[in-house]
Amino acid sequence: MTAPTLEDWQLDLGGVLLGPGTSIPVAEIEGLGRPDGRGELTEQPGADGVWAAPDWYAERKIRIDCAVKTPGDPAAARALVARLQEAADPPEVRTVGGAVMPLRIKWPGSPVKVMFGRLRKLEPEWAKAAFGWVPLDVEFAATDPRFYGDTEQQLSLRLGWLSSGGFTAPVQAPIRVSSGETGGQRRPGWITNQGDTATWPVITVHGPCANPQISHVESGRTLTAQAVLEEGQWLRIDTRPGQRHVVRDNGGHVLLTPDSDLGAFAIPPGRSEVRWTASDPTATCRLTVAWRDAYRSL
């Protein structure tokens, strides 16, 4: 389903528009500033001041004070409340650990940004429903406190070509092909994060290949999967906060080498390069990298 277009000050919650020009005007939004932190300040015995523990962000709690406004049409008001309830009810979101839904928002002077989380509260007041007026208390908990670009970007890479010298007979499979310098040329996989903070990609390797290794050139960090993929098979490496896992197309899990750190494989702001290697007897495997621009604020 195509996401609806947003105008300034509008929000999109599960395909239902809120804000100016809609049937759900918004009075106030809380939680768009700095998210709450998870860090303790511990008193130092016999010394001034306190010791500050590492400060991690908690979830971002978005509270929306709004109301359904359908003058003289209580049935339409009820239907809008029902649509909001239905948006958060699909089992693939509500009953699956880690699954989230988007909350999109358009602020003046900024592109549409999106947060991912769960609808935690939707409390209507029906006292004036007969007049088509139903105040709503809405709370959305974004599991990742960052704001993300509305559009997911994607890069597809085949294995790098061989050196300009060609093959030397006899050639035996598997042929190991790697990206890098080739006859004075480069085959880079450029990733551009147009935001102002790090983002985490979702990487998919499509077989046939064995033991793929993905590298972020600027940081030197690598992810190496211990797996053999046949043609038509794939594995997915999800590095996103709250989503971090590696899984195969058949639902099986994949082991990474001990030096592979999903949480450290972040894409910084600006342009950087991803390369990968694998053993492939056909040179037909490919890799896709999907990511969103990430922002600290609206």
Rank of each mutant, 00 (worst) to 15 (best):
I29F: 02
P54Y: 00
G14C: 09
E7H: 06
S219L: 14
A82G: 03
F167V: 14
T199A: 05
V171G: 04
Y148E: 11
A266P: 04
S279V: 05
P20H: 07
N250P: 12
I214M: 03
L287M: 14
L287R: 08
Q172K: 11
G195A: 11
P25F: 08
F131V: 15
E152W: 00
R296I: 12
V171I: 12
R104N: 00
A88E: 02
E86C: 00
G39Q: 05
W200R: 13
A77D: 00
T42V: 12
I64R: 06
E125Y: 14
C66S: 15
P20N: 10
P258L: 03
G19Y: 01
A198W: 06
L18C: 04
V246P: 12
A210G: 09
V100Y: 12
Y148T: 11
D293F: 09
L255M: 10
L80N: 01
Q226K: 01
I237A: 06
P91N: 00
D89Q: 12
G184W: 02
W126S: 11
F116W: 15
L229A: 04
V247T: 06
R94T: 07
D137F: 02
M1V: 10
W133P: 09
A52R: 02
D261Y: 09
R236H: 02
P201Q: 07
D280F: 06
V138D: 09
W126L: 14
D261A: 06
P201F: 06
D12L: 08
I175D: 00
L262P: 08
A264E: 05
W161D: 11
A88P: 02
Q44S: 06
V114Y: 00
I62Q: 10
G37K: 07
A290V: 08
Q194R: 13
R296Y: 07
D48R: 15
C66D: 03
V246F: 07
L6I: 07
D196V: 08
G183T: 03
L255V: 09
R248W: 03
L11V: 04
A294M: 04
V289I: 15
L11F: 03
Q154M: 02
G15R: 05
G49M: 09
H253T: 15
T70V: 04
T204M: 07
L122R: 08
